[in-house]
Each structure stands twice: as C-alpha cells, then as structure tokens.
C-alpha cells in the first residue's frame, strides 16, 4: 500500500478516535448513569460501561453526521445495554414489567421509606430495574432531561407514544415519592 492510500485510512482512523474522545468527554458521566440503570452489580456495571465505550468507538467508523452526536451516542449505549439485559434475562430468568404495570404495583418500599432508611436515588434505581428495556430507556432519557421528540429519535417509538409514557413516568414518580415525603413529614411531626 503506498502513502496516498495509507493517508485516507489514517485520516479516517484519526477522525474516529477524535469523535470517540469528544463523545466520551461530553457523555462519559451520562453513560455511567445509564449503565447503572441496566446493571446493579458494580463489577458487571464497569464491564458494561467498557462494552458501551468499545461499541461507541467501533460505531464511529459509520458515523456520517446524519443524526446528532447525542442521538448516536445514546442509541449505541442503549442498544448495547439492552443487549446486555437480554443476555442476563436468559441467565437469571428475570421478568420485567412495563410502565403501566409499574404504576399498578403496590409500593413495597413504604415501610423502609417511613423509617427513612433508603435514599431516593436507590429507590429510583429500584423502580427502573423492574422495567422492560424499552420503558427503561424512556425513563432514563426523561431523567437525563430529554424531551419526547429527542427520546423518540433515539428509541424509535413515535413521539406521541413517548409523550404518553413520559406522562405515566411523572405519575409513577409523583405517587411513589410524594407518598414517601408525606410519611416522612408525619414521622417528623411525631
């Protein structure tokens, strides 16, 4: 291979590397939060983050700017993490629920919440871990501050459908955490 053939390949590799570095710098923390939403075990979670970063680096070979960097990064991250969950489902035989079913499940944390033993982030993750991958993605995107249109672009649902799910998320979170706040208020008064 002569120098003229080597240079375009080198340029393409440099571009992939610099895109990866940029994405890792901007979204590194968000990717860790996302991984935590898919994997509770700390060691497996670190592996998942690395798996996401590897998939991201490989994927930049095909990134041509037809979508935003954020959309691309989150698609790669969610698809990698969802694939991880599917593998774990086969191993651990776990059953997940959708947002509608989550809204109807009894709040099993009431006792602990009343005792003030659980912090809210841990409770949030407990809720998320019960969700099917698709609803989990909507929840994580919502908590990251994304609107329905951006979330729909990443996940592939219609914006209308995402908006409905977001409405459900707000109901679930309000119900679970407002009830907890009320119980803590009652306890403080005593």
């Amino acid at each position: 291979m002569d120098v003229e053939q080597i240079q375009p390949v080198k340029d393409a590799n440099d571009s992939r590397d610099s895109q990866f570095e940029e994405a890792a710098a901007i979204y590194g923390a968000a990717l860790e939060r996302l991984a935590r939403a898919y994997e509770a075990d700390p060691d497996a979670r670190r592996d998942l983050v690395q798996e996401i970063l590897i998939a991201l680096w490989r994927s930049f070979e095909g990134f041509d700017g037809r979508c935003s960097l954020r959309t691309w990064v989150y698609r790669v991250a969610h698809n990698t993490a969802a694939s991880h969950v599917t593998r774990q489902m086969r191993i651990r035989q776990r059953v997940f629920v959708g947002l509608e079913e989550l809204a109807e499940l009894p709040d099993t944390t009431e006792g602990e919440a009343a005792a003030g033993q659980r912090d809210e982030i841990a409770l949030l993750y407990e809720l998320i871990e019960q969700l099917r991958p698709l609803d989990r993605q909507v929840m994580v995107a919502y908590l990251e501050g994304m609107d329905a249109a951006s979330t729909a672009e990443i996940i592939g649902l219609s914006a209308r459908n995402v908006a409905t799910k977001i409405h459900r998320i707000k109901q679930v979170l309000s119900r679970r955490f407002q009830a907890r706040r009320f119980q803590e208020g009652e306890r403080d008064e005593r």
Binding site: A55, S59, G62, V73, R75, T80, L134, L157
Partner: peptide, 11 residues
C-alpha cells in the same frame, strides 16, 4: 453489536 448500531434506534 454491528458497527452501524448507531444508525438503528432500539426498536
């Protein structure tokens, strides 16, 4: 995952 995983939404 395929290299073009970023081109595909989760769905």
């Amino acid at each position: 995952l395929p290299g073009d995983v970023g081109l595909s939404s989760y769905v």
